[in-house]
């Protein structure tokens, strides 16, 4: 991609994503146990178990181990005086440029899990689109929000 935006999101995001990966894995695990019971009790076909096992392994490898770190490594952003730049994506890498003049408002939001990790998500809205930076350190997020909203206010609004 040549030139990359400078700043990375919080390292804790990685842990957070791993945890949600584990939760997802846990749900699948429960479903698989249910399936195992069904096979034992009502003689459901056994090949279902093979599929379930494969899904579990894949989930462990991808959504707990590989994807979070790739996602984290790729996520970058930069806020300058005139524009905001975002870059993300694992297989499809998207780099987005939002001029400060176009920003209509900035929000930060924090779910329970994010709060636990002192992280927070920023949404930047233009007249047509919404762009999110996930899992920034909450102090940093507040700074970024403030700076964007003060920079955006300077710019004249003509939609």
């Amino acid at each position: 991609m040549g030139y990359e935006p400078a700043r990375q999101i919080s390292r804790r995001a990685l842990t957070l994503w791993r945890i949600s990966g584990v939760i997802q894995f846990g749900v699948s695990l429960l479903a698989s146990i249910g399936l195992l019971v069904a096979v034992l009790l009502w003689e459901w076909p056994a090949w279902l178990l093979w599929i379930a096992g494969a899904v579990l392994v894949l989930e462990l490898v991808f959504s707990v181990w590989l994807l979070p770190s790739l996602k984290w490594k790729r996520w970058r952003y930069e806020v300058s005086e005139h524009d905001i730049e975002l870059q993300h994506g694992i297989f499809w890498i998207t780099k987005t440029l939002v001029p400060m003049v176009r920003v209509q408002h900035v929000d930060t939001e924090q779910g329970p899990l994010l709060r636990k990790f002192r992280l927070s998500t920023i949404s930047i809205s233009t007249a047509a689109t919404v762009h999110k930076i996930p899992a920034l350190d909450e102090v940093e997020a507040e700074e970024v929000r403030q700076s964007i909203s003060s920079l955006a206010r300077v710019a004249e609004d003509d939609v």
């Binding site: 890498i93 176009r102 047509a128 689109t129």
Partner: peptide
């Protein structure tokens, strides 16, 4: 309103990528 560049890992190897821009239209984009 905003512009983005998209590129898959495979496209990077052969130096291709896509561009996408957003316009405001009605209440959306």
């Amino acid at each position: 309103q905003s512009a983005s560049k998209q590129q898959s890992i495979l496209q990077k190897r052969i130096d291709l990528s896509s561009v996408r821009v957003a316009l405001k239209s009605g209440a959306g984009g």
